[in-house]
Amino acid sequence: MELALVIAVVVVALTFDYTNGFHDAANAIATSVSTRALTPRVALIMAAIMNFIGAFLGQEVANTVGSVISPPSGSDGLVVVLAGLLGAIAWNLLTWYYGLPSSSSHALIGGLVGAALASGTFVQWTTVRDKVLIPMILSPLFAFAAAFAVMLTIMWVFRRRNPHRMQRNFRVLQTVSAAAMALGHGLQDAQKTMGVIFLALLAGGFVSPGDDLPLWVIIAAASAISAGTYAGGWRIMRTLGRRIIALDPARGFAAESVAATVLYTTAFVYSAPISTTHTITSAVMGVGATKRFSAVRWGVAKSIVAAWILTFPMAGLAAAGCFWVSHLLIEALP
């Protein structure tokens, strides 16, 4: 029974990783596609490759996700992890359908917390506060301010250059910034799935606390998110690339560079599983505001912020419902 549940959790976790890939594919490439720095298909291939590579760059974020809750050993703990994943997938699919770039990261952690509360499992609230909630608030604010400042600097430094030539050069540079963003996405988001699989293996007794992630877990998570990224997230790409603000190559480069820097810093320095979606969206708003504040379509931004606020509790509620249903089904089995 426990082995079957472990296999089920791993399969569902990789399914979540896949949905994370196509849900968040737009994070890395929407600005490059909207400015025509890259064609959509080339951008997706590049993002998929960089996502795969990024998954191998560390385990700090995976360790943080794996310490958010302390599920009991055996089938009870596995059901908690499974319900958390199902709640996150449900919210991911809902926001993907409506084209809202919500956070897969916060959906996953919200799902784990919701399932844990429904089951009476211990939640590491200090970790949730320090590694999730505080970075969730600060990273978008910093990305907005930094992107605004970087774009102002670019405008001042190149103020006497030929605008057409400058934008053409930044279109080339966007290939680099988009690749850096995709690498950061793999570094952050693939590790979150690794952390959940580790929780399942821990509950099933296949690993011990403090063990390193098995290599097959890293390869499987990297492959799933890459495949999902290649499948593409066209609905969300349209929101990020055009509906918030019409970007030019210089602004696209600034937004991607700032977002990638934030992803690397929070992963390597703070081990914090931040949202790639929140980060790049805030950076896009920041560079857009340098035109004039009215240039940003704040109505669209308001809808996105609403999705951000709702993600954690709604994924938690969905996961709690999944736990109760799963628990009843397992009890009904002979």
Rank of each mutant, 00 (worst) to 15 (best):
M1H: 06
L5D: 01
I7T: 14
V10G: 08
T15P: 01
F16T: 02
N20D: 04
G21M: 06
D24V: 00
A26L: 10
I29F: 14
S32N: 12
V33F: 03
V33C: 04
R36G: 14
A37S: 09
A37N: 07
T39A: 15
T39S: 13
T39W: 13
V42H: 14
A43D: 04
L44M: 11
A47H: 09
A48Q: 03
I49L: 12
M50L: 14
F52R: 06
F52L: 04
G54I: 07
L57T: 15
Q59Y: 08
A62T: 04
T64I: 10
T64Q: 05
T64G: 11
I69R: 02
S73E: 15
S75R: 08
S75C: 13
G77L: 07
V80G: 04
A83N: 01
A88R: 06
N92K: 01
L93V: 06
L93W: 11
T95M: 02
Y97E: 15
Y98I: 07
L100Q: 08
S102C: 10
S102N: 08
S105C: 08
H106F: 12
L112N: 02
A116W: 08
A118M: 04
S119Y: 05
V128R: 11
D130H: 13
M136G: 15
M136F: 11
S139T: 14
L141Q: 06
F142V: 10
F142G: 15
F144V: 05
F148M: 09
L152D: 11
T153P: 15
I154L: 15
I154Q: 07
W156I: 14
V157D: 07
Q167P: 10
Q167E: 12
Q174V: 03
A179N: 05
L187Q: 04
L187R: 05
Q191L: 01
M194R: 00
M194I: 00
F198W: 11
F198I: 10
S208F: 14
P209A: 01
D211A: 13
W216K: 01
A221S: 09
A224I: 01
A224C: 03
I225M: 14
S226D: 11
G232H: 01
W234T: 13
R238P: 08
T239F: 10
A246P: 12
L247G: 12
A250M: 12
V258T: 06
A260K: 12
I274D: 12
I274Y: 13
T279L: 07
I280T: 14
I280F: 12
T281P: 09
V284N: 04
M285E: 10
M285T: 04
M285N: 05
G288E: 12
G288T: 11
T290Q: 12
R292G: 15
V296Q: 02
V296K: 02
G299Q: 08
A307T: 01
W308P: 00
I309P: 06
T311M: 01
P313I: 00
A319G: 00
C322A: 13
C322V: 01
F323L: 00
F323Q: 00
H327D: 14
L329R: 02
E331C: 07
A332W: 13
